[in-house]
Design a protein around this nucleic acid. Structure first.
Lengths: 213, 213
DNA sequence: CTTTCTCTCACCCGTTTGGAGTATTGACTA
DNA sequence: TAGTCAATACTCCAAACGGGTGAGAGAAAG
């Protein structure tokens, strides 16, 4: 038998907190260290217990769940934070994730699935409600909304990729076995097409708009 | 009663394909339009049927599932593609996502959960196996894996942020109301600390390691 | 068979950067 | 109080870059 998952739970709704607490206590494999209605004693609690998993409601009076995440991660880096909320808001999701949360569930998730999610997160997974996951994915694939094509030629793309790697004109000239002057010409054409006027700007634009893929 | 989910299934393993096909046919709410062992007739199939959801195995002979995704999305943008695979490989995941896949399940997922995932994806969610989701999240919060500090001073950080915005030395000098020479001095100190030797390299390093946050 | 595009190379000119020093001031620290 | 460091500024030099102009060879398109 494995060691139980040492859990701390933050939830301001009393009924829900007590209900879930009962569930955690009744389920083998879980050790509920504490259930709190706010983050008042957050630091002391986390620092002292170093729990495996923190189940954190987002909407709480006082310190919000999102603000609490970085504090938890700072005091106990190994602790996995699972956010639980009713608000399916993109900004909140990303802030929580950037702050170090490892999972994100909406409150319509069934108690059984929450138990499963806690086991998942403890095993190194990142349980996410599908609608939340979709928002995350969109930030990955949308980098090209206007997806403009600037009409760069093959050679120009090659040069641009070189710039993005941080190469100098001379370096690329050698690499491509052409004259530095030729590289400069290509670069000037690239600048015109991208409407920039320096290496750095070209690199930034290329990176931001994913031109090098 | 709602319209059934119109589904197309690609899977090279015959036993698995037939088993899942039976399940789809037996489950109310699902309409299996076709199940194929490879992507030979991918274009015709997708173009003609415009399915709601495509369940796509990644490891297939011939055209791989990953290569198939962009084709599906091109021919039928509204179709949601759910990847199904044994390989829990980060690169494969990101390629599939960038190509337009909306969900990603490992093959150890139970048939019941696959059915749920298909309903989720059809409702606009992005079902993801927790271990896959973790890989995705890491790319968001990765900012500090080696999280080096480099010990940049306040002023140096300010200058670095300027570089990342594409400013020239002169531009920053004006902005900060200091001499260009001073900017140059700061920049040289930044180069030493970051161990680079050009503006572009500094910008790239700053971006990659999230130093400007 | 011209026109257009891409890739190639060259020269000029002025500005911006990189590299290496030196130096003054003020603030913090041992 | 002496030492360290950040921030400021300057000088000299050489390399790299940005902008302008021109031009030849080959391929693709009209």
């Amino acid at each position: 038998m494995e060691a139980p998952i040492r859990l701390v739970y933050f939830e301001d709704n009393k009924a829900l907190r007590e209900g879930m607490s009962f569930l955690f206590q009744a389920t083998p494999g879980f050790a509920l260290l504490g259930a709190f209605e706010n983050c008042k004693n957050l630091k002391e609690t986390i620092a002292a217990w170093q729990p495996d998993v923190v189940l954190m409601d987002i909407d709480m009076p006082g310190l919000s769940g999102i603000q609490a995440v970085p504090i938890v991660k700072a005091l106990s880096p190994a602790t996995q934070v699972l956010m639980l909320t009713v608000v399916d808001d993109a900004d909140a999701i990303f802030q929580a994730i950037r702050n170090g949360a490892s999972g994100y569930l909406l409150k319509n998730t069934s108690p059984a699935d929450i138990l499963t999610a806690i086991r998942d997160i403890h095993r190194g997974g990142s349980p996410m409600t599908p609608s939340v996951a979709r928002k995350v994915l969109l930030h990955f694939q949308q980098p090209k909304p206007g997806g403009e094509d600037y009409g760069l030629s093959t050679r120009e793309m090659e040069i641009l990729r070189g710039l993005v790697k941080g190469n100098s004109f001379k370096g690329m000239a050698d690499e491509l076995s052409i004259s530095v002057e030729t590289v400069r010409t290509h670069v000037r054409h690239i600048y015109e097409k991208l409407q920039v006027n320096s290496k750095t700007e070209a690199v930034l634009k290329a990176l931001r708009e994913g031109l090098t893929r």
